[in-house]
Design a protein around this nucleic acid. Structure first.
Lengths: 215, 215
DNA sequence: CGGTAAGCTGACGGCATGACAGGACAAGTG
DNA sequence: CACTTGTCCTGTCATGCCGTCAGCTTACCG
């Protein structure tokens, strides 16, 4: 599916080359966690990887290109978020648990990948379609699942007809993503993680089912 | 309160100087709308303003410093968002209208200032306290007001006791901000503005009051 | 008109970028 | 072992942006 890994000038990369490439990606990833995106320089990444800037340019057109690569890897993992929703029930106590586990899983994933997700978010907001697509890829798994759930409940008459399933799901997913990327902010706002999660779960549950959960 | 405008080397700016300074800010602002934050260069801003890079450095320590200035100006305007909530009712039809107007005003403000808000969001997410403070300044007006409303309703027994007002308000505000900054994204997701707003209002209303609105 | 401070810029060393050609290295072949 | 081949890395270079300084121009004031 992914095809062969290639250098910028078209040659296929061997075992050694791929190792170097991956090391550069790892170092870039680390760099993104510790310094502002704007200040990440090719030369620093190369130095950290114990190689030269020229090597970097052999594998990536520029910093952005490498970031896209990292984001792509993360998006592949992120597809696993679907499991948080597949075959889950949204009724009764099970529904409350579904909501809680969704929030939990989502926040965990975001915390694990916060640095790269920040950059993806920026790129998407700036209108870059490549970043936007990656963001979609991650959120779509959750979003589609939520959209379908709302549609089903709507068909059964359990949710108001004038709710737009896609808009509702999108809003909830956007909320989760936003809260996740500002988790530290909330803490210094005087809100503790332990308080945050139940509230998010509550909002998700009410948004999807239109009702308060039974706990 | 703001004191005199000063150059980097400590001189006070006169009429002419302030005009140049403002022109640089305007050009930077325009630049942020049209090109990625990472690619905004001092020399481009200076050229656009019909001046030299050296002049830029006379008024700002670097690009980030100038961005903070623009953000500060915007934050001052953003304090006006409080009006969307002051003295509003959250009961009955009036409550539904309050929620709708909050969503409307919020999305408008964000769309007007999307370029600079993107950068502020990034800075805050990266842990820069100066950007974080500005983000707070904008969101706090709405956040505090919502927090108080939830507290009051809770005191009257109309909202569950185990809801944390601060967490709930923060989550809702984060949702509004996130949806606002990805408005274009929603559109290509197949969700229309007209559908989005009522759904956001619904979530806000349910989050604050714990009940579905009466329309 | 002369003094003073504000305002602007040319020019410079320093550093990142991105391209290239060539050297180092591993693996296969006779 | 010598030789070949193809991959992989780096030294080096032209280019362009960064951030600073001394010095020139402009505006204001007595």
């Amino acid at each position: 599916m992914t095809g062969q890994v290639r250098t910028v000038d078209g040659r296929v990369a061997g075992r050694r080359g791929q190792a170097t490439r991956q090391k550069l990606l790892d170092c870039l990833s680390e760099m993104l966690s510790s310094s502002p995106y704007r200040d990440v320089k090719v030369i620093d990444v190369a130095r950290k990887a114990g190689t030269s800037p020229a090597t970097f340019y052999q594998y990536f057109p520029d910093v952005e290109g490498a970031v896209l690569e990292i984001a792509e890897q993360m998006a592949a993992e992120g597809a696993g978020l679907t499991e948080l929703l597949e075959g889950r029930s949204w009724t009764g106590k099970a529904g409350w648990q579904t909501a809680q586990e969704l929030v939990d899983g989502f926040l965990d994933f975001w915390r694990k990948n916060d640095a790269i997700l920040r950059v993806v978010d920026l790129g998407a907001a700036e209108g870059d379609k490549r970043f936007y697509k990656i963001r979609m890829k991650i959120l779509n798994s959750v979003n589609n699942s939520l959209t379908n759930t709302v549609k089903e409940l709507q068909a059964k008459g359990k949710v108001d007809k004038d709710v737009s399933p896609a808009a509702m799901a999108g809003s909830l997913v956007a909320m989760l993503a936003a809260v996740a990327s500002h988790q530290k902010g909330f803490q210094s706002w005087g809100v503790k993680q332990a308080e945050l999660k139940p509230n998010l779960a509550l909002l998700v549950h009410m948004g999807v089912t239109g009702r308060k959960p039974t706990r």
